[in-house]
Write a protein that binds this DNA or RNA. Structure first.
Lengths: 110, 110
DNA sequence: GTTTTTAATCGTAACATTGCGATTAAATAA
DNA sequence: TTATTTAATCGCAATGTTACGATTAAAAAC
C-alpha cells in the first residue's frame, strides 16, 4: 500500500523514521554536507555542485526545509540556504537515542 | 524517475543514505528497538508485537538483514533474530561522521 | 507418512518518490 | 517598461516501497 501505518507506531518511532527518510537519498545527504562545508549556499550553487536539475534540487531543499533541518534566506533573486543549527542539534539527540542503545551482551545468535 | 543516481554521489553519501533508508520506516525502527529490548526475538513475536502481517514483517527483516544490521538464527521451525552488534557499531560510526559535523558559526541566515 | 508450526517467497494492488521540462513568480538590471 | 536572473511550482513519466493474501518450504510433532 506504500504508506506507513503511522497510527500503529509511537511518536518517537515516527519521528525517527521521518528524519531518517530525509537522509535516505544521497542528493539530500550531499546537499547537507555542502551546507556544512559552505554555509550558506545558494540554490544555484547546489545545482552546479550536485549535478541534478534545478527543479530536483529545489524539491529536495523543500523537504529538508519542511523538516526544519535547513533554512533559506531570500537575497534578491537568490536564496541562500544553511543548516538550522538548533533543529539539527535536536534531531541529533533523537537519532542518538535510537542509535546508541545498549547492545545486549548475549542474544540467540551469540 | 524514482531511482537515485548513485553514480553521481560519493560512496559515503550512498552508504549513509542506504542506512538512513533502513531507518526510514517506523516498522523497521520498531523491529530494531524490540531487538534491542529482547535480544533475540522470534519472527512470530515481532509479528505479534508490531501488528503488521507476517509477510510484511518478514520483508522488513529481510531488508535489515541484507544491510547486515541484524542476523537470524534458525531454531527448528522458528527463526530467532538479533542485532548484529559489530555491524551496528560500524554503522554508527558512519552515521556519526555525518550527523556530528561541526556547525558553522555564522551563515547567511544568521 | 500426515499434520502442524513457523517463516520465507510470490504476486499484485495501492501508494510514494524521484527527476525534469515547462512554466510561473519575483526581484534586479538595463 | 522590458529584459534578465534566480528559484519555486506544476505536471507527468518512470520507478520504488509497502502491505498482505496465497502459497511454498522446512522442520517438528504426532
Amino acid at each position: 500500500m506504500g504508506l506507513a501505518k503511522t497510527e500503529m507506531f509511537t511518536d518517537e518511532q515516527n519521528e525517527i523514521s521521518l528524519f531518517a527518510k530525509a537522509f535516505g537519498h544521497p542528493a539530500r545527504v550531499a546537499i547537507l554536507q555542502q551546507l556544512f562545508k559552505i554555509d550558506g549556499c545558494y540554490c544555484g550553487d547546489l545545482v552546479t555542485e550536485i549535478g541534478l536539475a534545478q527543479p530536483t534540487i529545489s524539491q529536495h531543499l523543500k523537504e529538508l526545509k519542511y523538516l526544519g533541518l535547513i533554512k533559506g534566506n531570500v537575497e534578491g533573486t537568490s536564496v541562500c540556504y544553511c543548516i538550522h543549527a538548533e533543529n539539527w542539534t535536536k534531531m541529533k539527540v533523537i537519532m542518538a537515542q535510537f542509535l546508541d542503545q545498549d547492545l545486549p551482551k548475549e542474544g540467540c545468535c551469540s
